[in-house]
Every structure is written in C-alpha cells, then in structure tokens.
Design a protein around this nucleic acid. Sequence first.
DNA 1: GGATTTCTTGACACTAGGTATCACTAAGCT
DNA 2: AGCTTAGTGATACCTAGTGTCAAGAAATCC
Lengths: 147, 147
Amino acid sequence: MSSQSTLAPRVHAAEQSLGAAGYRLTRPRRELLRAIAAMPDHFTPDELIHAVGPAVGRATVFRTIRMLTERDLLCRVRLEDGTLAYRWSGAGHHHHLVCVSCGRVDDLQGCDIDSDLARLAAASGFAVDGHWLEVYGRCADCRAREA
Amino acid sequence: MSSQSTLAPRVHAAEQSLGAAGYRLTRPRRELLRAIAAMPDHFTPDELIHAVGPAVGRATVFRTIRMLTERDLLCRVRLEDGTLAYRWSGAGHHHHLVCVSCGRVDDLQGCDIDSDLARLAAASGFAVDGHWLEVYGRCADCRAREA
DNA sequence: GGATTTCTTGACACTAGGTATCACTAAGCT
DNA sequence: AGCTTAGTGATACCTAGTGTCAAGAAATCC
Ligand SMILES: [Mn+2]
Ligand SMILES: [Mn+2]
Ligand SMILES: [Zn+2]
Ligand SMILES: [Zn+2]
C-alpha cells in the first residue's frame, strides 16, 4: 500500500490541505486529485473530464478545478490560442513560459515587473494593483530538435 | 453632409485601409465601422451585436471583428474577469491599463519587457518570441472619486 | 455502531461566446 | 448592364462553463 502514496506526494499534500480547510474528502475529489497527478504538466478541464471518465460528473470537475485554483493548489495558464489550462501551483503570484511548439510550460522565476509597471502606469494616473502575463516561446528541447 | 465625416475620422481611415487591401466595402462592414466608432472605448462582440441591431447578422459581426483585429484596426483586451473586449488599435504590439472600477482602458506606453523576459527565460532554455500582458488597476478619476 | 447534520454530487437544463455550412446577394470590374 | 467572386445571414452546431435541486455520503456526535 506504499505504492499509492509514493506515486503522488502532491495528492497527499493536497488532501491534507483540503481536509485542514474543512473540505470533505469525497470520492470524486480523491479521484480528481489522482487523475490530475497523472496528467501531463498542464491540462484543460475537458482533458481532465475524459481522463477521470464517467466516475465523476462534469459539473463536479469544473467545480473542483475552481476550488483548487482558489485554494492555490492549481494555477491557470492561458495558452497562445486563448484556451485556459491548469497545472499544479507552487508559489503565489508567478508567470509562465509556454512552448508554442510542444506545449511545455515552465514557471518563470524572478520576474519583477511590478515596480516598472507602477512607474509606467503612473504616467496615465493609474494605480496598478495586478497584472496578467504569459510568455510564449520555444523550449530548449524543441530548438535542439530542429537544429 | 460634413457631419458624418467629421464624426468618424477613424471610420474613413478604416474604409480606406480595407479598400486598399482588396476587401469589399459592403453595407454590413460600413454599418459595423460606424457602430464601433459610436461605442465607448472598448466593447464586447455581444455589445456590438446589440448596438448594430438586426441590420447585420451575428456571424458577420464576429467575422468582421476578427478581420479588423487581424488587420490591426482593432486590438483585443482581456478584462479582469476573462471576457474579451475590443477597441480601436493604433500601433502594433502594445499593452493595456484596465481600470477595474470603471472599466476604462488606456494603452500602456513605453513598456519594454522583451529584453528582461528574454534574459529570464534563457535560464530555462526558452527562446522568447511573444508575450501577453494586461495590467489592472484604478484610474485617476476613480481614485479621486473615492478620496 | 447508528443517528444526525451539512456538504457535496450529478443529472439536467441552460447560457455565453463563437464557428461551419451553404444557398443567395451584391460589390466591384469592364 | 452583365459577370464573377467575395461576402452575407439563417441555421445548426459547438465548446466551455454555470444554476438547480433531489438524492447521496462525509464528518460529527452520541
Ligand atoms: Mn504556475
Ligand atoms: Mn490597444
Ligand atoms: Zn517545446
Ligand atoms: Zn476608472
């Protein structure tokens, strides 16, 4: 029975987090967390619906994604074509590097544009209180594959 | 008859631009350009559909918005709640300041994050070739109104 | 364990936003 | 005025998601 817990440390952490926050650990939620852990690094709601199969209702998949996103266990990625995808979230506010060739997503470390934005926006009289940034490009593997 | 042309210099410019590019200047396209000129600084497709009324079909509204966006006569704004809006576009690549209180949108001038992004992304092996940035905050008017 | 309480589920209907089809219309050209 | 082809719009369809609510099942309390 150790194989299950070693396969998905994030699942266990997420269950702890939800339990501590007063959410019930229902069968659908457990199944969704396991399904998410088995997905590639990001997934769309539709992909998750198909991955988890008829064991969990469609509405529950959307509800659970939203709840996990609000609890900061998942983060949103806006892909280049505008579709929304999700992935495990570590830290708080951060951005993503999205490979437009293979779809791979990396967290963008060390981005500090807040101060620049605040200064630029001040010229228009705006007080900045948030921003959304996605960065598109090509990952090392994809570039190597075509060189 | 001068009132029409003085009311909408952008409409005339847009018609010139489309004509020069080989697009036919149809009645629906003319009506849409006039309707867009009469909208507030940004609008959703649905708002435009209602503004133009039954004189133009729904599909044509979407098609025309897409065409104008591809031709760079309109630009897309992603509002804080995720809805897509459109507005007249001046330059090429630029960003927006969106007031989360009154909805006003300003173009963000002088934003130069490309080099920073390229440097940060290089740490992950990514070559950056594009990005999407929207900035949310509160405009001068809205701040004054609540002070 | 069993009863209770409250949260959660899932079927379903519904909405918003947008696209594919295709017969018909009308710009633009001569 | 006639021809050619781009453009239109009715319609059907689609994806992504939300609201409703009766029934089910966690957690809690005994
Ligand atoms: Mn992330
Ligand atoms: Mn703009
Ligand atoms: Zn790649
Ligand atoms: Zn404002």
